[in-house]
Amino acid sequence: MMTIILLMACITFCTRYLFLHRDLPFKVGPKMQQFLSFSAPAVLTAIWVPIVFVTDKGINLDWQNPYLSAAIAAIIIAYKTHNIYYTTLVGMGLFLILN
């Protein structure tokens, strides 16, 4: 078991470290950099949107879905306040009431 854990640790660490290693035989050009500038919104959204819409039974677009109403509220608060504390508290609060 410890061997599996150590091998997994190597994999996760290597995926994180690889491109922070200095001697790599390529350079990230300006076009690539521009492409990569979209990675944070892309990956984070790919994580949160399925939490809201995807269930074991498929995509849930029902307006009664508490995930959806709370997410819309959180989006509005995030847009208005730019504050992670307000957004999380209001979003979570509404979600717990509806759920």
Partner: peptide
Amino acid sequence: GLDFAIAATFIALVIPAIKNLAT
């Protein structure tokens, strides 16, 4: 359904970063 907490924090991080059509 506490997984919604992760969605809420990520919404808080992503939405303010939308500053143009491309994003």
